Simulated assay, not measured.
Amino acid sequence: MASEITYAEVKFKNESNSSHNYSESPAAPREKRIHHLSKPGSPSLPFTSLLVLFLLLSITFLVAFIIYFQKYSQLLEEKKAIKSITHNELNCTKIFSPMEDKVWSCCPKDWKALGSHCYFMSTNKASWNKSKENCSHRGAHLVVIHSQEQEDFITGILKPRDAYFIGLSDPGHRQWQWVDQTPYNESATFWHRGEPSSDNEQCVIINHRIGTGWGWNDILCSVEQPSVCQMKKIYL
């Protein structure tokens, strides 16, 4: 009986010591786990790069589309303007094209054909701006000359006693410009000797001088002269 009490006391003592020792001993430090995680909602670096690339591609595509749409709209307007002009008679020539079986290339009556263009000598005298407007009403523009072949062809249909406006003018500082916005090439010009001669004379005529033949001369834009119109051939 006594041994059982002693066992009970020993057992109690051991539990008390164990409990005391546990409470007095410092708690073992816990390892802190650091997780390198992105904040919720913030995209990762590769995703951000892809997003920026996508935006740049989208902007590039949008700009290209706007430019293409503007050029396409301009082309449609030109075609619409040509269709709205009625020519009573056309002189047509049948040609063979690798793209199509048969094509008729036409110029309006009284127009002269060279290459892919038609040319018309207008005898109505008007200022350069009015002459430009008159050609526009015909679906054309004042003639643009870029070669000796054109120069010779055009002068061959003109009257030597008259002078004719062409599509060359100077908006200022002797920066000559063609009406169709094609580049002005110094090596393909046909000025008379000594011309151009005055900063105030900003429009150009083609005329014939005795002894030197045909050439270009700058004159005042307000002077009234005949003119030469040019348009692309009509294909049927």
Rank of each mutant, 00 (worst) to 15 (best):
A163T: 06
S198E: 06
H36D: 04
A140P: 11
I145E: 00
I66Q: 13
T182R: 09
V179Q: 00
L50T: 05
T189M: 11
I234F: 11
S58M: 11
I67Y: 14
S16V: 13
M121P: 06
C107L: 05
L57F: 15
M121I: 06
I234Y: 08
F120E: 02
L53P: 03
T155Y: 10
F54G: 10
E224S: 04
C106M: 13
D101I: 14
V228Y: 00
R138A: 13
R161L: 09
F69W: 10
R30W: 05
N17Y: 11
V179A: 00
P46A: 04
T182M: 08
K80I: 04
Y119R: 09
S187W: 12
E224Q: 04
F120D: 02
G172N: 09
S73A: 07
K32C: 11
S122D: 13
F12G: 10
I205D: 01
V103C: 07
L55R: 09
T155H: 10
N14A: 15
W216T: 01
L114Q: 07
K102Y: 06
A140K: 08
D180C: 12
P183K: 13
Q230E: 11
W178M: 06
K32Q: 15
S169H: 10
M99Q: 08
G167Y: 00
E89M: 09
S16W: 12
T48E: 12
A81Y: 04
D199K: 07
G172V: 03
R33L: 05
Y164C: 04
K80H: 14
K232M: 05
A140Q: 15
R174Y: 10
A126I: 09
L76I: 09
T123A: 13
S116D: 12
H141V: 00
G156S: 13
K79P: 02
H117N: 02
K11S: 15
T155I: 02
G211H: 01
A113G: 14
Q74W: 07
L53C: 05
K233V: 11
Q230G: 04
S58Y: 15
I166E: 00
Y72Q: 15
E77P: 00
D199I: 06
W128P: 01
D110S: 14
I145A: 00
V52H: 14
E9L: 08
R174F: 08
S73C: 02
S16R: 12
R138I: 08
K83Y: 00
M231Y: 02
I82D: 02
N88W: 04
Q74G: 06
A2E: 09
Q181D: 12
P183N: 11
W111S: 15
I205G: 00
Y184R: 01
P43T: 14
E224P: 01
H36S: 11
I154E: 02
S25T: 11
F47C: 07
C107A: 12
G167P: 00
W216I: 02
I166F: 08
W214F: 01
